[in-house]
């Protein structure tokens, strides 16, 4: 079945089996391997991507065919014009990652969360990322990183808009 998706601003058309999971579509069809797979039960969140700019989804629990006509932002889409996204910078600054396996999913969840809750409290951050597991960091520094990014994003308000997943219509196919 042929699907058309916009991933990180680029439109892709691909013929896929209906049973292909979105995570594997991104990883294997598009070779965007920053989206990871850590479980089979929609538990770990390593595979989290953002749909249509605002909605975090676990891409291992969505078929690629369901993404037809949607815009997807993956970790590879965070950096813009050679400038790290405030979340990326903050994870680096605060030692918010160790093995790095959970990191892309964690950042994508935070990305969507900060669109809904721009000034989260520590409690809200902890709640917001509670669908994403990390085995390495103990979360302290992830929480710190997201708080830093939130501050950064609210002071430079335009940043979120700038990197919002592009509307389908405006993207050249």
């Amino acid at each position: 079945m042929v699907i058309s998706v916009v991933v990180n601003g680029t439109r892709y058309e691909r013929d896929v089996e209906p049973r292909m999971l979105l995570a594997y579509f991104l990883r294997e069809e598009l070779r965007l391997t920053g989206t990871h797979v850590g479980c089979d039960s929609s538990s770990c969140g390593c595979c989290t991507v953002v749909l249509d700019g605002t909605r975090a989804v676990k891409s291992c629990t969505m078929f690629a065919v369901m993404a037809d006509g949607h815009a997807i932002t993956t970790v590879e889409g965070l950096e813009q014009n050679g400038k790290l996204h405030p979340l990326q910078q903050a994870f680096w600054d605060n030692h918010g990652l160790q093995c790095g396996f959970c990191t892309p999913g964690m950042m994508m969840t935070a990305y969507a969360m900060l669109r809904h809750t721009p000034n989260p409290s520590e409690r809200e951050i902890r709640e917001g990322i509670s669908g994403n597991l990390c085995r390495c960091t103990g979360y302290n520094n992830i929480v710190k990183a997201i708080a830093q990014a939130a501050k950064e994003l609210t002071t430079v308000e335009t940043v979120t808009d700038e990197i919002a997943a592009p509307q389908k219509e405006t993207v050249p196919s």
């Binding site: 929609s42 969140g45 989290t48 909605r55 975090a56 989804v57 676990k58 629990t61 969505m62 969840t109 969507a112 969360m113 709640e127 917001g128 990322i129 509670s130 669908g131 994403n132």
Partner: peptide, 9 residues
């Protein structure tokens, strides 16, 4: 219910 990412779907 579930977790905040699952709830978005």
């Amino acid at each position: 219910i579930a977790d905040p990412v699952v709830r978005q779907t």
